[in-house]
Write a protein that binds this DNA or RNA. Structure first.
Lengths: 231, 231
DNA sequence: TGGACGGTTCGGCCGCCGCCGAAGGGTGTG
DNA sequence: CACACCCTTCGGCGGCGGCCGAACCGTCCA
């Protein structure tokens, strides 16, 4: 309808510094203005202006604590939008890593990471595939949990709290694997459960996660995922 | 990963003229450069430059025929992206129409329209709701056709051709109704069937469609949709 | 073979926006 | 109370990009 509104929203994503902020914030956590400025390589004053625009545009939510300004993605819908844009903008063949450090960090991210509030990477794909094969998730005619899938969550004491318009299950296209993994309320609940129950732990200060020994056996027991599939 | 790629893609949407083009192209058809220029109110030379960028960025596909340059959205994924951006950028309460002509055109669009290649507006919502109530579509745990839904399509001779990564069923958020309607392969096939079978016809040169008398009885017979629900 | 028409290219203008450093305000700390 | 720290505001600079009109090129038509 209103082209100017669409253009104004897109303009918020159309700056390299702001895009860097958004990609960093895709880890689902709240960052301070200074952290984002360092991450994107711009002066604090520049970052401050960018954050002002993103908050005013409803892309970010902010929370002031003392002399710190914490910001996070405003809601799952925005995260979804950033994911989609990022997925479309990725070149088909990713650039080769330039250093050993970069390669190992990239490998860790490819093994397992969070994508806003759910699990992605080979870990996320393995879970999604296992749930599909076991009849807990239906991907052939769309993307939805089955009744058995609901029971599976229930049996593990993971409650799916429906609120707002957010779908219970949604496919999120994985950057590295180029296949969908489980997102939505169920994806978020599962990720929280995995972290709470010690199935995996965050490594470094980044989005990467590592599956623990207990996680491997739990994933094998509940979904039949072979530990080798995660490496 | 690459913030500059994301920003570059978003920049293609971040101009009012280009956004107007994309919204016009959401009707799923191919437009000529001149038509788009008039629609957006810019000089032909300006439109030509914009189209060059959109095509180079993979957002539009072009087809040259004689002295005409036809362009359309490159693929359903782009249409999805435009829809999502448009839905997010809409103000919560749409502006009141300024003229009677505008009001009646808006009302026609609200009743029924195409959204890229599927049906939207009250018509799209009514179909989606009816399919959900009848157990053909599952929305409570995601968005997917059920086995009975597959049979329903089969019974009507509508074949769902799976190709590429496009999902069979997907929810597309409706601008006017703010509820999801059926998109994806099934949504496109149903829309094509509805137009082919004369259930509805395009009105004007716009995206609006009108349900015919045969359409009303067909929708009632096959999905139990009362004609009153479409007005 | 003109001429109308759709589209493109080019030059030039203008405005917007991202960037920084300097200065200042509010907050926590020694 | 002074100082360090995080963030913000402001001024000024520079570049990018959208816009148009004029000229041009190819296509279709009389």
């Amino acid at each position: 309808m209103a082209a100017s509104d669409l253009a104004a929203l897109a303009a918020l994503f159309a700056d390299e510094s702001r895009a860097a902020f958004l990609l960093a914030l895709l880890d689902g956590r709240a960052w301070t203005a200074g952290e984002l400025a360092r991450q994107a390589g711009v002066a604090p004053s520049t970052a401050s202006e960018h954050l002002g625009k993103l908050v005013a545009g409803g892309v970010l939510a902010e929370e002031r604590q003392g002399r710190h300004r914490y910001v996070r993605l405003a809601d799952p819908g925005i995260a979804h939008l950033v994911e989609d844009l990022a997925a479309r903008s990725q070149p088909e063949v990713p650039a080769a890593p330039r250093s050993l450090r970069e390669a190992s960090a990239g490998e860790a991210m490819a093994r397992g990471r969070t994508c806003y509030d759910h699990l992605a990477g080979r870990l996320g794909i393995a879970i999604t595939e296992a749930m599909t094969v076991r009849g807990l998730l239906r991907q052939d005619t769309g993307f939805a949990l089955t009744d058995r899938g609901l029971t599976w969550f229930d049996d593990r004491g993971i409650t799916l709290v429906r609120k707002g318009r957010r779908p219970v299950a949604r496919g999120c296209l994985d950057w590295t694997e180029r296949r969908p993994h489980l997102a939505g309320i169920a994806g978020a609940a599962l990720c929280r459960h995995a972290l709470d129950a010690g199935w995996c732990v965050r490594i470094g200060s980044e989005r990467a996660v590592k599956v623990t020994a207990e996680g491997e056996s739990a994933l094998y027991a509940s979904l039949g995922i072979a530990p080798a599939a995660l490496r």
